[in-house]
């Protein structure tokens, strides 16, 4: 298992390099010029000097190397400095955002909590709803509950989040006035009142995303439970006279959770990626919203870094899912 994990980790390195190259080259072709919004009165030599200061005069491969260096060495060093008070990154150039004139990572750290709160909470809620629904639908296959669950799941992943979100705003903010339609980031939870306020503003985005996540995961859960319910060991357990409740919860559920856990792990990068559309609809200024504004503002270092971070997370959680699968299911052996 350890050998397998190490091999996979080593294999992730070329994958990530390839992805980094794709992202970098794609953005390098971009027509946008970081100098475009400077006044036209700046003399050409000053402009050239500014380009040099931004490192834009170097050939592509040098800039690619420098960016990788900054991403994998300088930024972690800054983090270590921050945590332990060392001075590893003293004097090193960090990845600067053209839009905010400050290090990209600082902006990301500012935006991360909102995304984690809203999108992460939605994921947790979605999983918590999906698992019982999946179990019940499978144990009572074709019952009314199962039919309704199937229909809701179908609707859940057919209706795009930008429509459910807008619909919810229309009903609950505009008509009923129960929830605010805009997420207020400056709200600090200090007492009961502000806690309720926070809950209210989180309710709608969390609901929209949780519906979407729960729809998918409950289908996996149901399919996996149905697979296992037909197995011989279930009949054996029933024949032993074990009560149905413990057959389901102790025997079937545990085995059915194996594929579902990996599906859940595979969905985690999407949490960090921030739901770009949902954040846009509810004006949550998380990572997804940061990405879309960076794209609109032509802030290439920000777009590069964010996209690459998402890619790192996807590769990482693919690995985690595979390792988890092998760890949970001793029948799977990778070597």
């Amino acid at each position: 298992m350890l050998a397998y994990t190490l091999r996979r980790l080593l294999m992730a390195v070329p994958t990530l390099l390839f992805i980094a190259a794709v992202i970098f080259l794609l953005l390098d072709l971009a027509p946008g010029d970081p100098m475009a919004n400077q006044p036209l009165t700046i003399p050409p030599e000053v402009r050239a000097e500014m380009r040099r200061a931004l490192g834009l005069d170097e050939p592509t491969h040098v800039r690619f190397g420098l960016w990788l260096w900054q991403f994998f060495v300088v930024e972690p060093a800054v983090l270590v400095d921050h945590l332990f008070g060392t001075t590893l990154a003293e004097g090193q150039a960090r990845i600067l955002s053209w839009q905010f004139r400050s290090p990209v990572m600082d902006v990301i750290v500012q935006r991360l909590p909102q995304t984690l709160w809203v999108v992460g909470m939605a994921y947790v809620v979605g999983v918590l709803i999906a698992i019982p629904i999946g179990i019940l639908s499978a144990t009572r296959q074709y019952s009314v509950f199962d039919q309704i669950g199937t229909f809701v799941a179908m609707v859940g992943f057919s209706v795009p989040t930008f429509f459910t979100g807008v619909l919810l705003i229309m009903i609950f903010s505009v008509k009923l006035g129960w929830f605010p339609s805009i997420y207020d980031t400056r709200l600090r939870v200090t007492d009961w009142q502000s806690f309720l306020q926070q809950l209210r503003q989180m309710a709608m985005p969390v609901f929209v995303l949780a519906l979407y996540n729960a729809a998918q995961i409950s289908r996996y859960m149901r399919a996996s439970m149905l697979d296992n319910l037909g197995q011989d060991y279930v009949r054996t357990a029933r024949a032993k006279g074990e009560p149905e409740r413990s057959v389901i919860l102790r025997h079937v559920l545990r085995n059915s959770m194996i594929p579902v856990v990996t599906v859940i792990a595979l969905g985690v990068p999407a949490v960090f990626g921030g739901a770009i559309i949902t954040e846009q609809v509810f004006k949550v200024n998380g990572l997804g919203q940061l990405l879309i504004t960076a794209i609109q503002a032509n802030d290439l270092p920000m777009v590069q870094t964010l996209t690459f971070m998402f890619a790192v997370l996807i590769v990482l959680f693919n690995l985690v899912a595979d390792v988890l699968y092998g760890w949970l299911d001793p029948r799977i052996r990778y070597d």
């Binding site: 996979r8 294999m11 296959q141 074709y142 799941a153 992943f157 998918q216 289908r219 996996y220 149901r222 399919a223 996996s224 149905l226 697979d227 594929p259 990996t262 599906v263 595979l266 693919n318 899912a321 595979d322 988890l324 699968y325 092998g326 799977i332 990778y334």
Partner: peptide, 20 residues
Amino acid sequence: MTDAASDPPAPGAREAAPPA
């Protein structure tokens, strides 16, 4: 990389048909 864990069954892939 192409093992069972990274391509889970599509939702409902192995479900039975509606009551026939």
